[in-house]
Structure formats: structure tokens, C-alpha cells
Design a protein around this nucleic acid. Structure first.
Lengths: 245, 245
DNA sequence: CACGCGACTTGAGACAGATCAATGCCTTGC
DNA sequence: GCAAGGCATTGATCTGTCTCAAGTCGCGTG
């Protein structure tokens, strides 16, 4: 189900540019800011790692020693309140860069949904690379800017949208970032649980479930199985979402 | 009431480094990444401007031609839904840099609360300066990273906190960024209206008002007048906020 | 194939916060 | 000094979503 790497990957320092050059995630990643011929420099500081399903690889509050780049699978990013209430701030798929922060502790946790592969960069190591490749730093600024825009959109959703609007917005957002094999009916896969969706949208599991059911009743979507959604009526969904996001 | 500039400021291109060198906002701003001797370069591309109370100087959806740096006053940053529902994503005070985005349209609007002074930088002009001063670009990445962390904290607030926790968090956040003249009782000024606070916290005016009244009844805060708050019991407020933010 | 477990769905009732409706209280202008 | 308008507060009621409580489904296991 998960896009497994073509080669067996073990936790190790990379040698040569090869693993980066053939990385599935590179086209969608900050790494594409680095030319093929300079790739060796980046590969030298990357440690390829994996996280088993449900395993956390970033812990909110812990000393921030590394940056991360997801290469396969999906991770949930979240913050917790002392009593256990959770807010998922985003889902990180292949190409997603994690760990940007001036602070010396992580501001959020990251947990693997399914199996996740990622590159880990020790902060000082990556800093050196950034000094040599301003294009990479510029690219990071672009990534951060985009995430900021997405975060503002999410604040609008959490602060002002109804449950129906939230779920519609969520499905639409997933559909625009799932372009492959577009047919008359868009199919999208939801690797995360209903609980994850609820904590992402500021709702409860029950409300997410009820809302999806209602969208199905209204023939706007189809739910062939628990982790797939068919979008039957994109326009209706857009109208329900209240706006672009 | 507002910190008016010491010199009369008109909308004009700057000459020499002087206005930047003596700018009140520089110490808290990205501009501090540039040495005094290079400041002329930055001043040359800055256009000093002001916005009257209530006036928008950034409009969501419009072509993004400039970056901005607030030098005095406070602006509200917000997004709207088609039916008028509003989410304020933040308040921008002196030193706040605005307009970061890869997209060619603004993702949010900015409106002056009271009188606002700001520097405007045409995007291509600032880009040239960035090419010459990597330190400034690095600083921008730092700013963006910090805002991202703040945005995640706000998502936690909007998605998972109760009204009381939201208001307490808001007051605390304002209190940490209002360090001047700390006495036994911290006094903080709220330049924005109750309506702004409500739209920032994902609540209604009435709920904000009621919650503040309740905090006053509980002797946690004092409300000498509509735009000032006294924090009588910082610890109680922290306990109510549920966490740091 | 029965079993058990975890994730999901569905229903009924409760409640935090929204909405609707006065009322109060500054500020401004005449 | 007084009227008017704009915010803010307070009260009464309503409602969308949460909470609590059963089910149901699907899947791996013995």
C-alpha cells in the first residue's frame, strides 16, 4: 500500500550522490534546489532513516538537533495540551521538509502513519551546506512562506467554518494535491484515521463520520471503503467548502 | 496614544541611510540584519508610508507587488469567507514583516488599527537587496519559521481550546510581548476592538466580553478601561491557558 | 470459522458558545 | 450640556457540535 523504496534502505550515512539522485521525493522537495553535480555534498550529510507505523520521530519540547525530509509515507504533525487534547497541524508526505524553527526545541511532534522513510540532517551539518548553497536557503524560505499561507487558511477553517465546510475543505485540499490519474471521478486515499482527521479539523470522530455520511447521502462523494473517497461532485464540494481551501 | 514618529513622515523614497538608521522599529525588525554602513542600500528601496485608522493597505487576492514592514502602530491581518465571516490570523506591530509568499497574490488582508506607519518594498527591488545581503534572507527565514511556530500554536488554540483558555492564552501572549516597565501588576494595552479579539480567537464578541468579565470577577485580571487589562494573577492565567501560548 | 479487537458508524441527550435583543457607556460634534 | 452613534456589556434563548452509549464492520488470529 505504501510506496516502498525500490532498494532496501537501512539507517546509514549516504555515500556518493546516488541515493539522492534517484530519490523519489526529490522533485517535490527542497533538495531539487541543488544541482545534480552538487548533490554529493547534500547526500554526505543526510542520514536515511525509517519510522515504523505509529512511531514518533520528532517530539514536541525535545532539543531540536535535526532537520527532516520525508521521502515516503505520511506523518502526522501535532501539538498536545497537558490533558491530552491534540491538534494535528498538518500531514507531511514525500518531499515535506520538517524542523524549521529558530527555537532550540521542537514546537510539535511528528508520528509515522504507516511506514515512513525520511532523511535526517544534523542542524550544524545542514547549516554548513546552506552556507554553500544560497539557492537551498532561498528554497527553504519559499517552503516556509507556503506553509505560512497554508497555516492561515487552516486558521480560517478552525476559527470560522462549520463542520460541513471543514470536511469539504479537507477533501478538496487533498484532491488538489493528488493529481495522478485524473478520471471523471476523482479518487483520493486517506492514509490517516478518522481520529486524525478530527484532530486536524478541530472536530470529534463522530462529527467527521456523520458529516462524511451526509455528503455520501447527498451524492457529493462516495466511500467505497474506509480509506478511499470518490469525489462525485467537485462543484458541490467547492460550494460547501465556502472558498478555495 | 499611538507612538507617533518623532519627525513628520511623508510618503516618499528615502535618501541616505538616516531614516532607517534612526528607525524605532529597526531593533525588532529584519532590518537589523543589515549593518549600519550598508543601510543606505536598504533605505534606497524603502518607501515610507502610512495608513489611516481602518484603512486596508494589503488586500487578499490582489496582485502581490510589495513587501511591508510595520514601523509604528498595529495592523490586523485577516482572511474573509464569501459571506463575511472573518478570521484574524495575527496582529502586526512595529518591526513586523509582511508579504512573504511565493504566490503572486496576497493570501490575507492587512488593515490599520489606529494610525499605522510602514515601509513598502517593491518585490523586485527587495529581491535585489536580498541577493546582495544573504544575512537578510537568512533573517527572513528565521522570521518565517517563528511565525510558523506561532501559527501552529494558534491552530491548537482554535481547534482545541475552550473560550476561557483562548482568552487566557491571548492575554498571556500579549503580556510576554509587552515587557516594558514591569511592575507587580502587569498592565497591557489592547489596541484592537472586542470584535477583533473575537475574530482572532474564533469566538463572538459576546463570548469574549463575558469571559473577560468572568476573569475580572475571579480577580485574575482587572479592566480599568476598555483598552487596558491588568494582570493580577499571572499564575492563575497560565493555569487557565492550559499551556505556554 | 468463530473469536476478539480496533476502527468506524449511528443514535439520544447535554452543553458550550452562538444568536437575538436590550441596555449601558463613552466619545464626538454641535 | 445634550444628542447621536459606536462600541461593549448583560440577559434569554437556541443550536451545532460534543459526549456518552450502543451497535456494526472488517480484519487478523488461533
Amino acid at each position: 500500500m505504501l510506496p516502498l523504496p525500490r532498494r532496501p534502505i537501512v539507517v546509514r550515512r549516504l555515500h556518493g550522490a546516488e541515493p539522492c539522485a534517484s530519490c523519489d521525493a526529490r522533485p517535490n522537495s527542497v533538495c531539487s534546489a541543488i544541482d545534480d553535480r552538487d548533490l554529493e555534498r547534500l547526500a554526505a550529510v543526510a542520514v536515511v532513516s525509517k519510522a515504523e507505523p505509529g512511531r514518533a520521530f520528532i517530539n514536541e519540547g525535545e532539543r531540536a538537533t535535526s532537520f527532516f525530509n520525508v521521502t515516503a509515507g505520511t506523518a502526522r504533525l501535532f501539538k498536545l495540551l497537558p490533558d491530552g487534547r491534540r491538534q494535528i497541524t498538518g500531514f507531511a508526505g514525500a518531499g515535506h521538509f520538517l524542523g524549521l524553527a529558530v527555537s532550540d526545541t521542537y514546537a510539535f511532534s511528528a508520528e509515522a502513519i504507516g511506514l515512513v522513510f525520511y532523511c535526517r540532517f544534523a542542524r550544524p551539518r545542514l547549516r554548513e551546506v546552506l552556507d554553500d548553497f544560497p539557492a537551498l536557503e532561498r528554497r527553504l524560505l519559499g517552503v516556509a512562506s507556503n506553509e505560512l499561507v497554508a497555516a492561515q487558511e487552516q486558521m480560517l477553517l478552525l476559527g470560522r467554518k462549520t463542520a460541513k465546510e471543514r470536511v469539504a475543505s479537507f477533501l478538496l485540499a487533498r484532491s488538489v494535491e493528488t493529481p495522478p490519474c485524473t478520471g471523471p471521478v476523482q479518487r483520493l486515499s486517506l492514509p490517516m484515521t478518522r481520529s486524525d482527521i478530527a484532530d486536524y479539523l478541530g472536530l470529534t470522530i463522530e462529527t467527521v463520520s456523520r458529516t462524511l455520511t451526509r455528503l455520501k447521502m447527498d451524492r457529493v462523494i462516495g466511500i467505497p471503503n474506509i480509506s478511499d473517497i470518490l469525489i462525485h461532485d467537485q462543484h458541490a464540494l467547492e460550494a460547501l467548502a465556502g472558498c478555495g481551501g
